[in-house]
Write a protein that binds this DNA or RNA. Sequence first.
DNA 1: TTCGAGTCAAGAACAATGTTCGTAAGCGTC
DNA 2: GACGCTTACGAACATTGTTCTTGACTCGAA
Lengths: 245, 245
Amino acid sequence: MLAAMNLPVPPWQTPKKRPAKQPLSREAIVAAALTVLDAEGLDALTMRRLAEELGTGPASLYAHVKDKEELYDLLIDAVCAEVRVPEASAEDWEERVKDFVRESVRVLTSHRDIGRIAMARIPTGFNVLRVADGMLGVLKAGGLSDQDCAWAVDILSLYANAHSYESSLFEQKLAWQENMLEVPFFEQLAEYYKALPADTFPNLAPMAAVMLTGNGDDRFEFGLDLLVRGLASRRPTVSPEVRPA
Amino acid sequence: MLAAMNLPVPPWQTPKKRPAKQPLSREAIVAAALTVLDAEGLDALTMRRLAEELGTGPASLYAHVKDKEELYDLLIDAVCAEVRVPEASAEDWEERVKDFVRESVRVLTSHRDIGRIAMARIPTGFNVLRVADGMLGVLKAGGLSDQDCAWAVDILSLYANAHSYESSLFEQKLAWQENMLEVPFFEQLAEYYKALPADTFPNLAPMAAVMLTGNGDDRFEFGLDLLVRGLASRRPTVSPEVRPA
DNA sequence: TTCGAGTCAAGAACAATGTTCGTAAGCGTC
DNA sequence: GACGCTTACGAACATTGTTCTTGACTCGAA
């Protein structure tokens, strides 16, 4: 058919069909993915669902994103953009380190299920590196050796990610069982632990109650305390103000 | 057709058709799963592949195992059976704690990809509990409070699992890239880090070399050292032999 | 103005996966 | 010898990530 195409478009009709909705970029995909993720969780984040959110088909996404893995990388980086990097200082050093890790898990757990994909990624994205750089700065202010600082970044990130991972999966499991089970599962677990035979588990059986004390945050704080105490004990010099003048 | 079934079976023919191969139990399934896992990795461990390994169809497995998740639980428990639980003692306490964690990751990394499914499982299996009980015993010998011991079991397990997870995924990624890439990826990463702009990453850029120093074991030892130092510093009393008599 | 190359979108399809349905076979008991 | 009851399992279903291929549109040059 002969189409009269190059006429000035009459204003009462939509000028073109394709770029009516904005033309689908990496950024738009990542933003939509975060929307789906926060609203419906990781299991709902399929390429089809994501395409639907963008008003297109799943195949279109692969023009902008190589893999689902690459999408995950982009998601992590986008989330890391929200981490507020503090300034480094030797004062209150231990608390500053702790606060940074707390801030990381705050962001990581503020987006639903993001913890489940955060682990075991080699940091290359801009925002991930920005966070690592900030962490390195905070650590170096404590006077640790360069090698200790470098590895500490690794370990603290691992800890933050691992906690977020467990937290995310635990929350999911909890929500799932809440809908399916009548007795709240935690009581079930408490019963189970208390019923352990004391002769087979001489240490565990008497401590059933203590094992179940505290929520995820308490445990996180405990582990964080261990790590930071360990770091502090590796400082070659004690803090300058208590050093003999 | 009329089948003469209740005749005494002639010894020169296989007596029955069904129980010729042994009748498919949880144990057999778990054993076969471990075989497939060790030989071909987690991605190859599909219900079909597992059924094939047992000479049956995938549907048959679901009579003995509720889920793939339950299969994973059983796998973890089976692997935990290999962990050698040491005896508790106050002597060389810190090194004993370390050795126990080392033993855990040794087992966890000795089976291919098992680290990828070890995290975020609520410990209920016999062998998992046995390991937790042993860990608790070793920790208590150090004189920590009950609450500290309980949470330390959690944190140390989390650390062992997280390290195994990363190690497993990292090894997979490394093996994959080794076949596809010509330049060994680690050099690529080193180049990338060294090329980071120093004005945007003032801490990271000068430390590119240090960041990449050490393999997974070194980093694991470093984190383990942090945790155990932290635990030691929480001991209410220093070790008895240095206490004033 | 027209053609042609090139880019982007997207429907359809493919292969693989976990899981369930329905049916059949064997075993124990009345 | 017939009836349950457990176990086995081929076939099928729904969902997933991903690719193939066709079509729509853009833009630059003849």
